[in-house]
Deep mutational scan, measured.
Amino acid sequence: TTIEWNGTKITVDNPQKAKELAKKIAKKLGLTVKVHGNTITIE
């Protein structure tokens, strides 16, 4: 699972952990999480 935001890509083996990490990042930055299959985008 890949997390993408602002040109940065982070690959996380565990999809559940990836989703939790994305939510934490999005919350800190005041952004939203969008899931597209194996890609999680923070916008």
Score class of each variant (00 low, 15 high):
I40N: 00
N14I: 04
W5L: 07
K17W: 12
P15K: 09
N38D: 07
I3W: 03
E4W: 13
E4P: 05
K24A: 12
T41P: 00
A26W: 06
K9N: 05
Q16H: 10
V33F: 10
N6K: 08
A18Y: 04
K27H: 09
G30M: 03
D13Q: 14
G7D: 04
I25Y: 04
G37Y: 04
E43C: 15
W5S: 03
I42Y: 02
I25S: 00
K9P: 02
A18G: 02
T41A: 04
K27R: 13
T41R: 11
K23D: 13
T32S: 10
I3P: 05
L21A: 02
A18M: 03
L21H: 02
A18W: 07
W5A: 03
Q16E: 11
G30H: 07
V12Q: 02
T11V: 14
N14W: 05
E43D: 08
E4M: 12
A26F: 08
K23T: 11
I10L: 07
T2N: 07
V35D: 02
I40H: 01
T39P: 01
A26L: 05
L29G: 03
W5E: 02
Q16C: 08
I40M: 03
K23S: 09
I40V: 05
K19V: 14
E20T: 13
K24F: 15
A18R: 02
V33K: 00
K34D: 02
T8G: 12
V35I: 14
E20I: 14
H36C: 15
V12M: 12
V12A: 04
V12D: 00
I42D: 00
E43I: 14
G7E: 06
A22D: 00
I40L: 08
L29W: 14
I40D: 00
I25P: 00
D13G: 11
N14L: 04
T41S: 08
L21N: 00
G7F: 10
N38M: 07
T32N: 08
H36D: 12
I10V: 05
V33M: 11
V33L: 10
N6G: 12
A26R: 14
E43R: 11
A26H: 04
K27E: 11
T2S: 08
E20Y: 15
K27W: 07
G7N: 07
L29A: 05
L29P: 03
K17V: 11
K28Y: 14
K34V: 11
I3R: 04
I25D: 00
I42H: 01
W5T: 03
L31A: 10
T11R: 11
L29T: 10
K27F: 09
K24G: 04
K17A: 10
T2C: 13
I3E: 05
T32L: 09
I42P: 00
K34G: 02
T2K: 08
K23L: 14
Q16S: 09
K17R: 12
K28H: 11
G30F: 03
T41D: 02
T41N: 04
K9A: 06
L21P: 00
N6Y: 13
A26G: 05
G37K: 04
L29Y: 15
